[in-house]
Amino acid sequence: MSDTWLITNLRAIRGRAYPRVIGSKREPSWLFFDITLPLLTVSAYAYIYKYMDAPPEFVGFVILGGAMTAFWLNILWAMASQLYWEKEIGNLQLYLIAPISRMSILAGMAVGGLFMTAIRAAATMIIGILLFGIALSFAQPGMIILVFMVTMVSLYGMGMMFASLYLLLGREAYHLSNLLTEPVYLASGLYFPVRALGFWAAAGASIIPMTLGLDALRQLFYPSSGSEYGFLPVNTELAILAVLCVVFLWLSKYSLAYMEKLGKTTGRLTLRWQ
């Protein structure tokens, strides 16, 4: 019984991930933009650092940060607001009557989004590295992969949580996503070491999994920069990220269950906007 439950839900995840994966293949026109757009911002910031004669690793920091924006934008525009649009289209109620865990739908969205975004972010990074002639250290490939994975799980966990909470919003959803860009880039230190914000501000910003994930990756890619520009030791950051993983996944499950209950009671969950 629990075995078929697992398989059913794995199939559901695959089912929901499918349109996302196939989607960017069907409409490749914007793949181009998703790769070049971050590159433009990255280039602008890289030139500022060049103009100011900053140490060379800063260009690398900016490129890593730029790659990270792809994930954040995916969270905001394709995770957080997604259930809301699914509701508008009428898909949400079809998901809700299916005999599966609601988390599978969110997980499918996340997996599909993460997969496609990872490809784009990688492309952005590789082009950036070639363009600016950056040298990264791959001394600890295992750690790099581990930190990346844990960061992504907690980041998309946060996105899944947003997805449920956004159901409470209407038109405001767009504005909230719009608001959560520059301030988050600032707080998470996407274009400068987050340590520059000061300890307490950086600690507060660490609730966004990107913050510590990016800081740890920078330290891993530039091992010698850690002592001067790193926020916390990499292992500490990894441990905190692991905790965030659990917290966000649990919160997303909890908030989704709450939203569903609320929707069933008020009757608004399956109501289309008009």
């Binding site: 089912g15 499918y18 079809l94």
Partner: peptide
């Protein structure tokens, strides 16, 4: 096909 997957087919 996608919708059948939500029923574990």
């Amino acid at each position: 096909w996608m919708f059948t997957q939500f029923y574990g087919m």
